[in-house]
Design a protein around this nucleic acid. Structure first.
Lengths: 160, 160
DNA sequence: ATAGCTTACATGAATGTTCAAGTATTCCGC
DNA sequence: GCGGAATACTTGAACATTCATGTAAGCTAT
């Protein structure tokens, strides 16, 4: 039900173009997510969320970030990050240290082992991203996709 | 790590454009998924997967589909559908009937209650889809998004 | 007609995510 | 400098998804 038929009048349903674009989009999303998720699971035994967390840490100065900042840059909730950090710490990929100057806080630090893991998985991850997305798009389409993505996310930013 | 630095030579990293397109895309995906998921959870207490299942059933002749077909059209795995069907049946939104002619199979039937629920939730769902996506895109961009989506999914189809 | 493969679906354990609390700190105004 | 609100993070329960496996029924070639 994204279309015609029974319902309170006044609902602006999707027209045919929007309808098919929407379904196509859902399908694309699914293909991409599943492809990457499966690849990472196989090659590194971690979900994509965890990969992104490690990746963000690897780019931070001293491979270290405050939990909250990490959650923000990785695009996860604090709760999710906290659970993830527990698992990542068990795996030996990160460490949590008390935050100097703010005893409420913790710093997440990427360990050497974590960095190595990331380094070893990254190439095949990037290859997957390429093969599922960029290899099938023209340069123009890449630009279009970015513009579309930014339109959606920018519109959605909270007014502070 | 989607970029430069340490790693086996020969890896084709993403260039700057691809990199930023990719991150923008991930962010968009997240915004859209979370928005819809949250809205459906609030308004109907169901995840989007379940909504799609009900929606597909509502469009089928007699609001009935064989489990396998339903899984296919809804884009879920059979296992996922089976679990979902259990929950949906508990909620009284669908029924499972033995499939005449093939005693292995089951038919999933959308109940009146399920149809009513769907009917009551659909408008706000569509409104969300609109507000998060179509309202911020031009007609041209909608077309571009569809083309991009199709490029990805078509390329990914299994060769039979 | 029967052995053996395949199809249709269910089930259970493992894992991730979300939501709602809960516990420390820190900040702020008076 | 003290009470109360906000911040930083954790925790546990509920739920969804996945993977591997299980069971029943249909198909097919001999």
């Amino acid at each position: 039900m994204t279309g015609t038929s029974t319902a309170p009048a006044g609902t602006r349903w999707l027209n045919a173009d929007e309808q098919s674009a929407w379904r196509a989009f859902l399908a694309m999303q699914k293909v991409i997510r599943e492809t990457l998720e499966r690849q990472l699971r196989q090659d590194a035994g971690m979900p994509m969320t965890y990969y992104v967390i490690l990746a963000m840490l690897s780019e931070a100065p001293d491979r270290t970030l405050r939990m909250t900042e990490l959650a923000e840059t990785a695009g996860t909730s604090q709760s999710q990050l906290s659970h993830a950090a527990t698992r990542l710490e068990e795996a030996g990929w990160i460490e949590r240290r008390r935050c100097p100057g703010d005893k409420r806080g913790y710093l997440a630090v990427l360990t050497d082992s974590g960095f190595e893991t990331l380094t070893s998985v990254a190439p095949s991850h990037v290859a997957s991203v390429r093969s599922v997305l960029f290899d099938v798009l023209s340069a123009e389409q890449v630009g279009q996709l970015q513009a579309i993505s930014e339109a959606v996310t920018q519109d959605h930013e909270q007014p502070r």
